[in-house]
Amino acid sequence: MENTNKLTGKDLINVGIYSAMTLVVFFVVGLLTALPVVYPFLFIIWPIVCGIPMMLYYTKIRKFGMLTITGIIGGIFFYLIGYGWIGLLGWFLGGLLSDIVLRIGGYQKFKVTVLSYACFCLGIMGCPANLWLAGDAYWENIHTSMGDQYANTLQSLMPSWMMYVGFALLFVGGILGALLGHKMLKKHFERAGIV
């Protein structure tokens, strides 16, 4: 059983558990977006906090596909709460990319894990990507639904170059998050006998 490349029931349950954990953490942190001023900083906060559950998740991953499934589930979730198809696509691509990195670099290696997690974080970009990619119709929608004042504040905080900065921040945040998660893993989880 250990040698097959197909995902077994145990793997799939692990996917469910860790996806649930990561999504809950992500969502709780995301509630901070109630204040648009915090928005740019979220690119760095999200990956760092989510690093803790994800590093624990990475200790269980030995097969291709688990991260992709997490990406798809996260994407469906964000599609339903209103980020549209770009959110779905972003999460899916992020999951796929991190899976490929793991596949090429090898499983259970710390450096590869850090890189792969940083790639996974790039997928988070799917959520705010609407602001730039969906164009004027989306902005018009925000203007009518949220009021001019909010839309203008958001627009001034989110110029188009912010997208590239966002990617960079997510990547750096991913690396930092992976390191933090690794530290926590050493400090708490190994002592508790979980890893």
Binding site: L12, G16, A20, I69, I72
Partner: peptide, 18 residues
């Protein structure tokens, strides 16, 4: 496929537990 259904049902089972 079960690759999606199993994780999804585990997810919904876990959110109340959490």
């Amino acid at each position: 496929g079960r690759q999606i259904t199993i994780p999804l049902s585990v997810l919904f089972r876990f959110i109340p537990t959490m």
